[in-house]
C-alpha cells in the first residue's frame, strides 16, 4: 500500500531530512512512525502524500509512484489517503461540519451523502454537539478531532496521521486510538507519526518504524520478518 525505496530528501540549504529510507507498509497494516522532533517523521508523511517529492529514491502509495504522478494528478492519490495534519490545517471561519464536508465536496459526492457521512464521522469523534461551531472557537483537542473526522470521511485506503493525539488528554487519546483500531479492523492501512512512546508501548500489536536523524534505525516489521 505504501512503499519507500531508498528515499532521500534534502532541503537545501538546511540539509538532509531523510537518508535512504526504505519500508513497505502492506494493505491493512498499522504502523507507528516514531522518533524525536526533526527525525523526519513529518517529511516521510509528506512524501507519501506527495506534498513533497524525494530527492532520490521512489515513494509508492495506493498504486501511485512519485516518479510518475504529476502535480496535476496528485488529487487522485489524495482522495485515497486521509491525512491528519499536526497543525490541523482546517479552513478558518467555517464550522466543524463544513470542514469535514469539504473533503467530500471536492469529490463531487451527492449533497445528501455528504451531510449524512459528515454527521456520522463527527458523532464518531464525539463532536456532534459542536458540529455547527466555527472551528476557530473550538479547543485544540476538538480541532484535532475535526481534522481526524475530515481525514476519515472519504473512507480512505490509507490514513496518515501526524501526532494525532498530541493535543488530546488520555481519554480523548483512547477514543482516537479506538477509532483507528476500528479502521484497521476494516482493512485500512494506517501510518501514525508520534513521539509519544507511552502510546506506542500500549499497542505492542502494531508495527513500529523508528527514525533518527533521517535514517530508519528500527523496523519491528523487519525484525519479525527476520525472526520468521
Amino acid at each position: 500500500m505504501i512503499k519507500l525505496t531508498k528515499v532521500t530528501k534534502e532541503f537545501p540549504p538546511r540539509g538532509r531530512a531523510l537518508s535512504e529510507v526504505s519500508f513497505h507498509l502492506r494493505k491493512g497494516e498499522f504502523a507507528f512512525l516514531t522518533g524525536h522532533s526533526g527525525s523526519g517523521k513529518t517529511t516521510t508523511l509528506r512524501l507519501v502524500h506527495m506534498a513533497d517529492r524525494p530527492t532520490s529514491g521512489e515513494v509508492r502509495a495506493c498504486g501511485f509512484s512519485s516518479e510518475l504522478t504529476s502535480d496535476r494528478e496528485v488529487w487522485k492519490l489524495r482522495r485515497r489517503v486521509g491525512y491528519v495534519f499536526q497543525e490541523f490545517r482546517l479552513l478558518p471561519g467555517r464550522t466543524a461540519t463544513e470542514n469535514v464536508a469539504f473533503a467530500l465536496e471536492v469529490t463531487g459526492a451527492p449533497r445528501r451523502d455528504i451531510l449524512s457521512r459528515t454527521h456520522r464521522l463527527l458523532a464518531q469523534v464525539g463532536l456532534s454537539s459542536s458540529s455547527s461551531m466555527p472551528v476557530d472557537e473550538l479547543s485544540g483537542g476538538e480541532r484535532q478531532r475535526v481534522a481526524i473526522a475530515r481525514a476519515l470521511v472519504n473512507d480512505p485506503l490509507v490514513v496518515l496521521a501526524d501526532e494525532p493525539t498530541g493535543n488530546l488528554d488520555d481519554r480523548a487519546t483512547r477514543g482516537i486510538m479506538e477509532l483507528f483500531q476500528e479502521l484497521h479492523a476494516r482493512g485500512t492501512s494506517l501510518l501514525v507519526a508520534t513521539h509519544d512512546l507511552e502510546l506506542v508501548r500500549r499497542h505492542p500489536e502494531f508495527r513500529v518504524l523508528e527514525l533518527d536523524e533521517g535514517r530508519l534505525v528500527y523496523d519491528s516489521g523487519a525484525v519479525e520478518e527476520g525472526a520468521a
Binding site: R72, W75, K76, L77, F85, L91, P92
Partner: peptide
C-alpha cells in the same frame, strides 16, 4: 492561500 493549500491537500482538483 492556506485555504487553497488545504483544498489541494484533501484532494481537490486544480479546476475545482
Amino acid at each position: 492561500r492556506d485555504e487553497i493549500q488545504v483544498m489541494r491537500l484533501v484532494g481537490a482538483t486544480n479546476g475545482f
